[in-house]
Write a protein that binds this DNA or RNA. Structure first.
Lengths: 168, 168
DNA sequence: GACAATACGTCAGCTTTGTTGACATTCCAA
DNA sequence: TTGGAATGTCAACAAAGCTGACGTATTGTC
């Protein structure tokens, strides 16, 4: 199981030692904290949480998406998502309209106010991400994304690739 | 603020467009889910949660660490950490010993049972991380870590660098 | 047309993990 | 000896996840 300080089988595999992998694990932990810190600060002033941010983000990204589709992307139960959507709709940030082809479906859109919140949150998160990108350089960014993509569950990778390949 | 589809000022800055940065944000979101998925599955069978995993991980990493130090690394309140530590101590996974130099401090160590749990969780998480590393290659891994480090808050980066530079 | 499946919403109750605030204890240091 | 730091505990609460059950509207199928 490759425990302890055993030598790697070749020079080119040094990056696969337990020690190297552990550093990556800790990097993910500490970086994710930074990743969410700025939006969290904004949300705390508005009685919303990270769950609201995620919903707003993906509704912005896929306008008109259905509840079921959002459920699959976020990976939570409908009861959990419903609680979030209810407050966003009640506060006039998200609109829910009955589907034309299939009237069972609800299509979700951001209102102007919802779009404003989305932009405020995204700006904060993007600023940090952009700084990190600039500090690390384009080749590092390419590697960053490759490793993250390889780390995803199969289903999440499908969602990710589909969104990535669809221009904004 | 670089909104919309405006052209970047130069070819080399293409990776800094809002679109590129947004892809990175979504990659972080989806990848973090995979990152925690395997340990979460194991923890669910043991009446523990992610908070227990984090405590066990960093106690393993810094044997004898104090409660205060752990608090700074984990970034939670002492009450929240205390709840987790109490159950780990009660279950015989962690030992808490009064400090020799400063008897106010408690030094935390994993017991044999605690070390066994740590290894079980780390093995699962490392397997996925190692697969991702192998799939992406050493240069991608270097970029991955550069971007993550640049994304951290200043204080977290200090913790990270200190741990990174201290061999296991 | 009857009936099963789907999409959505909601109620109730529970868990984990975070938060504040208040307060006691122990110990070090000025 | 007194003040402050480190630790721990109790209580109350909130965010955000979960399961299970149920209702309604709509759609697809036999």
């Amino acid at each position: 199981m490759a425990h302890g300080g055993q030598p790697p089988s070749g020079q080119s595999l040094l990056f696969l030692t337990d020690e190297q992998v552990r550093i990556g694990i800790e990097a993910m932990f500490f970086a994710y904290r930074g990743f969410t810190a700025d939006p969290d600060r904004i949300l705390a002033t508005k009685a919303y949480g990270r769950a609201h941010h995620r919903a707003v983000h993906f509704i912005h990204r896929s306008p008109g998406t259905t509840v079921n589709n959002l459920l699959a992307i976020l990976g939570v139960t409908k009861q959990s998502l419903n609680r979030v959507l209810r407050s966003l709709i009640a506060d006039g940030l998200v609109s829910s309209t009955v589907g034309k082809a299939d009237k069972r479906e609800r299509h979700l859109h951001l209102t102007d106010a919802g779009a404003a919140l989305e932009r405020e949150l995204s700006d904060a998160q993007r600023d940090r991400m952009r700084s990190a990108y600039r500090a690390a350089g384009p080749e590092a960014v390419a590697g960053f994304r490759e490793v993250l993509e390889a780390m995803m569950d199969e289903e999440m990778r499908h969602h990710y690739v589909a969104m990535k390949d669809r221009p904004e």
